[in-house]
Amino acid sequence: MPTVFDFERPVIELESKIAELKSFANEKGLSLETEIGTLEQRASELKQFIYGNLTPWQKVLIARHPERPGSLEYIEVMITDFEELCGDRLYGDDAAIVGGIGRFEGRPVTVVGHRKGRDTKENLARNFGMAHPEGYRKALRLMKQAEKFDRPLICFIDTPGAHCGLGAEQRGQAEAIAKNIMVMSALKIPIIVLVIGEGGSGGALALSVGDRILMQEHSVFSVSSPEACASIIWKDSARARDAAEVLKLTAHDLLGLKIADDIISEPLGGAHRDKEEATTLLISAVSRTMAELTAMGRDQLLDARYQKFRKIGVHLVSDSSGA
């Protein structure tokens, strides 16, 4: 049974009515085309309306949709000759982050990305896409390797956040994330960051310091998960919906804040409703961006990356008479 959200119910109900009517017409040999046409028209309008006016919280739900394509689904189609590479060479391999090398439109690239599970079993194996330090250190190793062999880097962002637990702290979760951020900011290769689901906190940022941050239409990126934010601000994680409304976490909001560089359209209703179309749209965005970045000189690329992050933030300049 596919996951259906409350706000989608009118669409789903109408679509099933149409399907019913069609099979009824077939069975009885009736011609109901006009009626069906009207209903289909209504369904399409309803979809446009509902999916065009999603609240931030509804976007969070779509970004977390269990059937939403993740990094591996996109890699499978986008990247040919993909070879997965594992391990951080220090402690272990972390399945919450996948990485490897392959070709994008014929050009060798390095790919790293968070990986949530598609079912309970995979989710347990991949810790729901929440990485330990070894995951970030694996990513770091592959990023440096990409630089050594002068391959562009593509990162997929899809994580609720870094794992929070004893082992993660003991092995230096903070240090691992900090190191990734610093190293990425100066990697001498083009870096394309694709936010494909939810980007949560430092655990997402650890793979996000790129030349371009492209966000899928229904993806979100936030300073912490709405649940964690609600718990910090209001001491009540149940107010996640309220937090989502004020955090400015949608692709549209982040384009406005100049954090996202572009929005990649999704099929109506979200990537999970038409995976093929979603992948096509993603590929064409990456293709365009790749051409742009590979045409830039190394120094120009690095300067632009520095400027991109350097400029982020809003402050006032008050008179100097003291606070």
Partner: peptide, 11 residues
């Protein structure tokens, strides 16, 4: 300050 804060880590 939401994502503006998170990105200060990068800056």
């Amino acid at each position: 300050e939401g994502m503006l804060s998170l990105l200060q880590m990068a800056k």
